[in-house]
Amino acid sequence: MKVGILAAGGIAAKMADTLNGLKHPEIELYAVASRSVERAQEFARKHNMPVAYGSYEELAADPAVDLIYIASPHSEHHTHAMLCLKHKKALLVEKAFTANEKMAREVLAYAREQNTLVTEAIWTRYMPSRRIIAQALKDGKIGSVHTITANLGYRIFNKERIFKPELAGGALLDLGVYPINFAMMFFGHDIKEISGTCVKGESGVDMIDSMTLIFADGKAATLHATAMGPADRNGIIYGDKGYMVVTNINNPEKVEIFNADHKKIEELPLPEQVSGYEHQVISCLKAIKEGAIECPEMTHQETLDVMRVMDSLRTRWHIHYPFE
C-alpha cells in the first residue's frame, strides 16, 4: 500500500517518521504534496520519500497512490477529501474530520457513492490501549462505572490554526475532540444532554472549554480542553469499587487501577509503539484488503456523532466559522 501525505506540516512529519519507523512490509511511504513544490521536495528529502508534488491535485491523480493521509487544517478537510474521492483514493482524514457535521455527511456520502474507504485519523480509537482499557472495565476491575473526567491542554493559542476562525480554529476541534472521544469510546454514543461553556480569545474562537455529556443510561462525563497552556492530560474513569487513571488520553502512557481506599492495586501493561500513529494506517490497510469503506475502530456513524457533539457546543457558544 503506497501512502501519500496531503500537506507538509508538523503532523504530516510525525506520520512520515512513524511510517519510516514502522518498516511494515506492505506499507510504503510514497508521496507528499504541498502548495509549494519546494516545500514538498524538502519534506520528501527529509523523510526519504520518492515523490513530491507541488499541488494536491497531482497527488490525488497519481494512480500509484493507494491511501492519502489528509493533514491540512480543519477548514480544508472537506475540500481535500472531496478532491481525493473524485479520484477514488482511500482516505485517512486527520481529526477533526471536518469543520461541522454537514460537511462530514457530504464527504461520507460521496465515499459511499465512490465505494471508497474513508476513516477519521483520531489515533486513540485505533490504539491497543483502547481495547485494554475497555476489557478492564468489562472485567469489572473498578465495579460499575458511572463518571469520566478527562482533559487536554497545550500552549498553542498563538498558532494560526488555533486563533484563526477561517481555519476552523479554537480549542474544541483541535483539543476538545480528544476528551470527547475518550468519553464516548468507553461510555458509548447514546448521549442525552450536551452542555458547556467556553472562554473566547480575541478572534472570537474558543480557547478554554468546559464540557459535560450526560448519557442515556445515566453516566456522566466532565471534560476540559485548553489552548492556553499544558494540562495533565489525564482521563479518570470512576466506578463504585474504585477508579482507573489513564495518563495522557492523547496517547496513553500508563493505566492504573485504584481501589475504594485510593490504593493502587494494578497497572495494566501497554504494548510498545512506534508513535501510536501506525495503528490507524494498519487498520486502513486491512480495510482496503477487505474492500471496506470504513474502519471498525471509527465508523462513519461514530464520526458523525462526534461532529454533532462539537456542533452542538459551538452553537451554544455562538461560534460560527466564516465559511459555514
Rank of each mutant, 00 (worst) to 15 (best):
F163R: 11
T315A: 14
I68L: 03
M307R: 01
C295V: 11
V274Q: 07
M127I: 12
M244D: 02
P296L: 09
D311I: 01
V37Y: 01
T79R: 15
L167M: 15
D62G: 02
L173G: 15
I288F: 00
H189D: 13
A8P: 04
T212Y: 03
A225Q: 13
E297W: 08
V65D: 05
N20F: 08
A33N: 03
I68V: 14
N151H: 12
D305A: 02
Y154A: 08
Q135R: 15
K263R: 14
N151Y: 00
H318P: 01
I194R: 03
R39Y: 10
N48K: 15
I68T: 04
K141T: 09
R35P: 10
H78Q: 13
P165S: 09
A99K: 13
L22M: 07
I191T: 05
K159I: 06
F97M: 08
D206Q: 02
N181T: 14
R45A: 13
A44C: 02
I191Y: 01
E160T: 13
L152M: 09
H74P: 14
D217P: 05
Q114H: 06
P25D: 12
L92I: 10
E38P: 03
G21N: 11
D240S: 04
V177A: 09
I194H: 06
I5S: 01
L173D: 10
A150L: 07
E202V: 10
H78G: 00
D139R: 10
I288T: 00
I27E: 02
G21Q: 11
I162H: 05
D305H: 00
C198Q: 11
A71I: 06
T147F: 03
